[in-house]
Simulated assay, not measured.
Amino acid sequence: MRTEPNMTRLDRLFARLDREPERPAGLEVPRMSPHRIVLFGSTLVFYLLIVVAVINTSWLVRLDWQLMFFRPYQQWQELHAFIDYYVVLGQRGPTAVMVAAWLGWRSWRQHTLRPLLMLGTSLLLLNVTVGAAKLSMGREGPHYATVIGSNEMWLTGDIFPSGHTANAVVTWGILAYLASSARARRYLSALSAVVSLGVGLSTVYLGTHWLSDVLLGWAAGLLILLALPWFEPLVSRAEAWILAQRDRYLPGLRGRATAPAPAGAPPLFPQPGPVTEPVLEPVGAGHGGRVPAHFSTQRYTVRSERSPGTPAGSRRPAHADSATRTARTAPARPVAGG
């Protein structure tokens, strides 16, 4: 017979939001499997083919110019306002803040720094690889093109590959990479692919990138995601070092359990017990016939409750020689009968 209460969806949601008592055992860490190595190699070949096609001013460059002259932002002007906001999903600042907030909660919940460290590793790889490619090839964008049909390479531009596209692939793809289940990984992979595809096409619509820039940006971001398992050992060592430094300099953050008190020691915070009345001893039992003052049962009256009264007689204390002086100065009485 089942006695557990039926949990609603809201109860299950709050249960998942609670912090786990300790780090979950057996967290799945992606490995560099043969399948992943094949995908990495294929993507790298695709990356190099695009670079060669643009350098040689092939059919891909002609397609870039045809799309530029088509001017999609003038053909579908009603989409312009929406795409201006949608393309923000590829900007590094806003997306990094949103994803870092989510992964920070994951790190706190699972007692591990791996999600944040993997995000930092992926963004560092993105800045180094994409930034180096941009600066080394120096391609100009559609708005700054000068010679029709040229590849606009080796100039002062920095748009090849597309940073918006590569950032969208890495930033949203890291959520799928760090997913805790295979089902969640599949859904998040599909979602990140759709978002990054939309961001890349949005830059082509706005005229800020060539189509070849977007293709190279997709390949650059995918290469980073596929190469992340190679950096897992380095991230594990970095996490262990950070936690060791925390325990060394901030021992209070470790959350140690309080050591039990030794046997026979008084408790640090005694529990309140029942209040008992003092027991009065009988009169004369060991007190010389008097009740101790601190056990007196007579109610003490304050000054305002006492009735006013004037003391009888003089308040001057009696002098020791007063009786002698009175006997000496009193007149002698006559003796009766004499």
Rank of each mutant, 00 (worst) to 15 (best):
Y205T: 00
L243P: 12
Y249R: 13
V214P: 12
G264P: 00
E232G: 10
P229R: 01
A219P: 01
A240C: 09
P260W: 05
G217V: 02
L215R: 01
R256C: 11
R256T: 10
V214N: 14
P233S: 01
E232P: 11
G255H: 05
E232I: 12
L234Y: 14
P229L: 03
L201A: 08
G252F: 14
P260D: 00
R256A: 13
Y249L: 12
P233C: 03
I242T: 10
S202R: 07
L222N: 13
T208N: 12
G252E: 15
I242Q: 07
A265T: 14
G264I: 02
I224Q: 05
I224D: 02
W241I: 14
G264L: 03
V204S: 01
Y205H: 02
Q245Y: 08
A261P: 09
A219S: 15
L234F: 08
L225A: 09
W218K: 08
A240N: 10
P260C: 01
R237E: 13
Y205K: 08
H209K: 03
L201F: 06
D247S: 06
F231T: 14
L250T: 04
L253C: 01
A240I: 11
W218T: 09
S236N: 15
G217K: 01
P229G: 01
G207S: 04
I224E: 00
L211M: 15
P262I: 02
L216Y: 09
G252L: 14
A227C: 14
A240F: 09
A259Q: 05
I242D: 07
I242R: 09
G207W: 02
G207P: 03
D247I: 08
P262R: 03
L234V: 05
G252H: 14
G207D: 06
A244T: 14
L253I: 04
Q245W: 09
Y249K: 11
P229F: 06
G207L: 05
H209C: 00
R246V: 14
A238Q: 12
L228R: 10
A238L: 15
G207F: 04
H209N: 03
I224S: 06
V235A: 06
L228F: 11
P262Y: 00
H209T: 02
T203G: 10
R256E: 11
L206D: 07
F231S: 13
Y205N: 10
L222D: 13
E232D: 15
A240L: 12
L223Q: 10
L253S: 03
A259V: 10
T208D: 14
A220H: 10
R254L: 15
A263Y: 04
T208R: 11
F231K: 13
L250Q: 07
T203S: 08
L225P: 06
L253Q: 03
A227M: 11
F231A: 14
L225D: 05
P233V: 02
L223T: 09
W230M: 15
G221S: 05
L250M: 08
G264K: 04
R256M: 13
R254M: 13
S212G: 02
R256N: 10
L243V: 11
L215P: 05
D213C: 06
L222E: 11
G217T: 07
G207M: 02
A263S: 10
E239W: 00
A257T: 10
A265Y: 12
L222M: 15
L201G: 05
L243N: 12
L250A: 09
G255V: 02
L243F: 13
A265K: 13
W218Y: 13
W230C: 15
P262T: 06
Q245C: 00
W218Q: 09
